[in-house]
Each structure stands twice: as C-alpha cells, then as structure tokens.
C-alpha cells in the first residue's frame, strides 16, 4: 500500500525527513511515534501527497507519487490536527462538497449513514462554527471515511477527538485490519495506539530508528520500548 525508499524532505537547510524507508501492507496499522520535530507529520504529509519529496521514491496505493498523485489521492483518507472543513458551511454541506470532490455515487445516503455513525445527524444542518472541537473532529472523521479510503493517514487523532469520537476511531482501526485497509497513525499516545496497531515505527531527527511488530505485546511494554529508542 505504501513503499517509501530513501525519502527526503527538507525545510530550508533542515532535513525533516532524512532518508526514510517504509513499507506498509494491506490491513497493516502502523503507530508512527517520536518526539516533537522528529519528522512524523512531515512523513505523513508526504504520504498524503501534500508535500513533494526532494529525493527518494514513494509509491502509494500502487501509484508512483511523482507521476500519479491524483490517482492515489482518491484512495487516501487524511485526518489532520484541523478538521479541514469550512466553519461557515453546515456539516451536511461540507460532506456534500467532499462527496462531489471524490465523485461518490451514493453521496446523500452515505452522508446520512456517516452523520448518524458519528452522532451528528441531528446537527447536520448547523454550521460547523457552532460545533465544539470534539464535534468538529467527529465531522472530520466522517469526512475522512466518506469516500471509503483504502489508506488511512491520521495525525495525532486522539488529541482532539472527544471520548465518543475516539471510540469510533478505535472501532474503525479495528475494522481496518479485516477490511484490508492500512493505516498510519502519528501519535504521542503510544500505549493507546499500541492496542490497535500492528507495528511501532519510531522516528528521531528525520530517520526511522525503530520498526518492529507490536502484535500480542502489552501496550505498556510497547510504551517502554518507545521510550528506550525515542
């Protein structure tokens, strides 16, 4: 689903991502951890095709990103710190917009299902400006799932989700393995994400310093391992 080789991205002189290799198979869920400034979010933005690598190769969902970024984007679901929705549109209008951008055939039925799923059906005609942070992020979760993405990219998702949203997200990540969807979850909450992740990848100073399985391991043990290497 994702194959990165020697990926480099620099902001000026500073290499935020410095020669990263990463491979992700269908159904695999990776917890991507590291201290602030380690390069996690930059790597996620590269995979989301929001940044272009200055060197190295990146293949996402079978598409070489240098040539086929647009085709890959159709299969990526991206959840960022910000909900990526317009505050002055209603929840439904935002999802209609994204539904049209992704060319979803059963747009209206899908929107109703997802709004119900994230507990916002009753507020669907309200502008997002009237939502709490947690509600807006639940709408972002619906936005991310709207086009049935095969690859989920999540940037510290638990940081801004309320309890209900976090439970929904954990359910989605549990279901992802069975559906063959892959996920990269950037996180500081390693033990929490370890419950739903198959692998722990740790970055330090733009490089991957640890890439190992978490399957069957106690989340606290995963946390301790992270602290050793980070």
């Amino acid at each position: 689903m994702v194959t990165a080789r020697g990926l480099v991205h620099a902001y000026g002189e500073r290499r935020a991502v410095d020669g990263v290799d990463l491979a992700l198979a269908p159904g695999e869920r990776v917890a991507l951890a590291g201290a602030n400034g380690a390069g996690k979010s930059t790597l996620l933005r590269l995979v989301a095709t929001l940044l272009r690598a200055q060197s190295g190769t990146l293949e996402v969902l079978g598409e070489e990103i240098a040539d086929g970024a647009r085709a890959a984007r159709a299969g990526i679901g991206y959840l960022a710190h910000d909900p990526l929705v317009y505050l002055d549109l209603t929840a439904r209008q935002n999802l209609e917009l994204y539904g049209d951008l992704y060319g979803i055939d059963d747009r209206d039925a899908r929107i109703d299902d997802l709004l119900d799923h994230v507990g916002l059906l009753g507020r669907s005609e309200d502008t997002v400006r009237t939502f709490s942070r947690g509600m807006a992020q639940r709408l972002a979760l619906a936005r991310m799932l709207l086009h049935r993405p095969r690859l989920l990219l999540l940037d510290e998702p638990h940081a801004s989700l309320d309890a209900r949203g976090a439970a929904l997200l954990d359910g989605e990540l549990e279901a992802a393995r069975a559906d063959g969807r892959a996920a990269i979850i950037v996180t500081h909450e390693v033990e929490r994400v370890a419950r739903v992740a198959d692998r722990l990848v740790v970055m330090r100073a733009g490089r991957v310093v640890c890439d190992e399985s978490t399957d069957g391991r106690d989340p606290m043990a995963v946390r301790r391992r992270y602290e050793e290497v980070a």
Partner: peptide, 15 residues
Amino acid sequence: AEREQHVLDGLLASP
C-alpha cells in the same frame, strides 16, 4: 476561508 479555517489541505488531499 481556506487559509483562516485551515481547509486547504483537505482540498489538496482530494483528487
């Protein structure tokens, strides 16, 4: 709106 409400990434990440 895209800049102040940080929506641009959502549009750019779409196909």
